[in-house]
Design a protein around this nucleic acid. Sequence first.
DNA 1: AAGTCGTGGCC
DNA 2: TGGCCAAGACT
Length: 373
Amino acid sequence: MSLGDCAAPMALEVMIAVWGGVNTALRAQLLAWYDANARDLPWRVRPAAQAAGAKADPYRVWLSEVMLQQTTVPHATPYFLRFTARWPTVGDLAAEADGEVMAAWAGLGYYARARNLLACARAVAGEHGGIFPDTEDGLRALPGLGPYTAAAVAAIAFGRPANVVDGNVERVMARLFAVDQPLPDAKPELKRLAAGLVGNERPGDWAQALMDLGATVCRPKQPQCDRCPVAAHCAGLAGGEPETYPRRTAKAERPHRHGVAYILTRGSEVALVRRPPKGLLGGMLALPSSDWRAARWSETEAMAAAPAMADWRSVGEVEHGFTHFTLTLQLLRAEGEADGVTQGGVIWSPRRDLDGLPSVFLKAAKAGLNGLL
DNA sequence: AAGTCGTGGCC
DNA sequence: TGGCCAAGACT
């Protein structure tokens, strides 16, 4: 529903009072639903435990929120468990070597997050005495904390009544208010609508309740409206097609790129390189590779770009989808002579220890070594 | 402000 | 099976 649906003329004060009452009811209904249906997640302090005095650890809240940026709960969970077991405090993480943290992040994607994670941990440890700022603005100033993550940590770890808006909340708002404007243009409007629902009671639970609702009931596909605690307020449901929200503008098609990856072995070892600190897969270990361009690489071109003089043999290719392009990686393999390496900075790594590679290179290495791992 | 930046699961 | 998309941030 919207204010415009009130047909009879009302004094402004009355309209505000009625609207406020609707919001109060909606908030209470969703929080009650959360008390009974909150997911049990390793970084979460459940409502019952909070009542018993347990408090969220800002380090764990922050770490989980960064890992969950554009990442599903099942994918992030094992990483969260490994990180917190290995680095129990922000100080432990801050003291770790870059390469160790990047390798631990391998496979999780969006590697700028790992670089910013370390930068943030070191800022907190070095400039804040190991204590996270407890305000949204203070958190927002840290590396890797944008509008969403700063609001989420402020609300969940520090009980600040912040407007926590992620993809789940955008979807819930789009359905609740039947917003026909498509994403991403609708983002400011959806955020404004979400702000109108934020109250002062249990800010952290409110944020998590809204996201749990989006993840388990108000799902992208096949929303479970019959189980929704706020279905009575939902204009999208009333309109009959809640699953069609949020609208989205059509995306541009993904281009295709081609590259060559070189698998140079020396006994049981494989030659790896460290990618430059910024850009795609920045700071990560990788197989040596050519540029990635629109045209396939001829055999001659592939040889000319090789990192070593060697007897290169074609061992197939792999395809990998990135967010904004698809990559075909032609694979060349050779048994290397130590003095044949023409590119500097080669890191010889055991074949059986390639877990620190991003998925695209792990896939290429496995395919190119053809079961020799 | 529009592009860049990963990955795996899903239907 | 291929396009869609998930607790976004940075430039």
